[in-house]
Design a protein around this nucleic acid. Sequence first.
DNA 1: CTGAAAGCGCTTACAG
DNA 2: CTGAAAGCGCTTACAG
Lengths: 329, 329
Amino acid sequence: MASTIYDIAKQAGVSIATVSRVFNQSSSVSERTRKKVMDVAEAVGYHPQAFAQGLASKKNNTIMVVVPVISNYFFMEVLGGVQDKLGELGFDLSIFNVTAGDDLFEQVEHVLKRRWAEGYLFISIHLEDKQWKQLTRYNVPITLVDEHYQEFDSVSVDNVQGAYRATKSLLDKGFRRVAMLSALKSSKPIRDRLVGYKKALSEKGINFCESLIISGESLYRDGFTERGGYEAMIKMLNMDDVPDACFCASDIQAVGALKAMKDMGASMPIIGYDDIELSEYIGLSTIRQPMRDMGFYATQNLVERMKNHDKAISQTIYSPELIHRSSTD
Amino acid sequence: MASTIYDIAKQAGVSIATVSRVFNQSSSVSERTRKKVMDVAEAVGYHPQAFAQGLASKKNNTIMVVVPVISNYFFMEVLGGVQDKLGELGFDLSIFNVTAGDDLFEQVEHVLKRRWAEGYLFISIHLEDKQWKQLTRYNVPITLVDEHYQEFDSVSVDNVQGAYRATKSLLDKGFRRVAMLSALKSSKPIRDRLVGYKKALSEKGINFCESLIISGESLYRDGFTERGGYEAMIKMLNMDDVPDACFCASDIQAVGALKAMKDMGASMPIIGYDDIELSEYIGLSTIRQPMRDMGFYATQNLVERMKNHDKAISQTIYSPELIHRSSTD
DNA sequence: CTGAAAGCGCTTACAG
DNA sequence: CTGAAAGCGCTTACAG
């Protein structure tokens, strides 16, 4: 049977308030009392219980991360940054994984209502403005990562800019028929990246051609998978008029695309998006999103807001960086 | 101000016990009463609060996963499986990330003491038998993944066997100087895999040679990184007597090794370990660990134990499978 | 089927 | 610096 604050209090000959104070550093307790309490606590292996502390203090020292799916390179990297910061600050991490089938907004509201955490980090959760607006009434610290809404702090990367740079880098090399290896068309990153792609084309006076936007059939993880990239590239190589070069919506899709080219004995310059750790090792040119930094900074920002609810809202937008490697040589 | 069970009770004209019952499905409440309560609850957006439920019921519907580091392919895959199962069962997921610098056992005890969860999944947490033994006194459901101790349920893969098969596959092809691209020597997986490697050698009557066990310098994540593999392969290629073939302790290291070979204009058959999703796409031969299944099954097992503390302890050991791809052709 | 009441293990003004 | 006491928002026998 685990011991409670009452057991410790009795054994140490003090009140439960004192025991509580000892475990909450801050308050004043004489060194002698503190030691007495700690000795007893250690002897029986006592530790305050998270529930009870949470109920009584309305704090639980927990940050909740809400993501679409954990097993994805982008989230993995962002989470790495989140953890680095959280470890530093001594907060606990909880993860809520929204499921694909059900209503996203409902799930998000559910998380907020249950009040599991003191602060929430929403990673790649895309809602409509009026839905975000509704969430403001929960009046709880929220930081958005890879999304943007004016009433919450956010940390994101300019997707339009990134896609623009990627596409432009290909056009600058003289390629004219530049395809975009896409994914689920309705997804936010795809929509933004398509805009950047078009922008680069039009700047060069090249007409946009719908048939050059190609995606695979498998829509698991919205198509941001090796398989999605593989399928799309196969399609591309089977076109009557094969594209000259290709901008891939993510590095992981580019990995699949590379395999497809190999299997088909074809070759074409391609550039990815993300710069996952792996890309350096397979020589993939790409657009770098500072994923780890985003997670790190977003967490820091969130904790600051938790301490000061009235601080001005900050929108941090990273500039994506073009990374040249052999895949576009 | 969020509403409580009292507000709902008052507005619905019932007792708080009844409101509580409505939210706990199980108990009997007349359809009329239930509806009345639900209507009010919905109107004000009421939801029971996790803390209070936890305190009162000693349950919190949460499973805690304890891992060394999230941002790692192996854990990511295992976590994917955990999530699949958890979603199905309606449990919440919490993650505790043990930090590298501090005492592992202390951290693990800390997690258990705080009683955050109803069940714990320890992934790749390696302790000594007597330490595991000590944890049994917490008397809480624990399932081990990628580790083994007789008093807890566990799900693991036979590392000795896997390394043996990998090495043997190379020897069977006629290679004699087969190196092992290693990582932190003191880590459990490395120790086990070394045993399998040696076993395969001795079976063929080949002497074990210490100088063929090579690892990189960077020990971030115990050396299980692209960089670790890269550095090790560079060393290998610079040896006076370059090995004929190489068994890599993980796929991710193999990715680095492949790059090193390319950079050095060298080539050598290599086989990895894990079979991360990527491997198929880069043609890496490897030993498959069913990571997703392991996470899935371990979670199921844990939940079963949570429901029945007295069920017999089960040790599930998966057999690693040899996957042939082009890297060993 | 429903209510009154005790209790879960803490925190935190309020006094002293 | 320390204690008595109220309260956090629920659950759950116990009665009826």
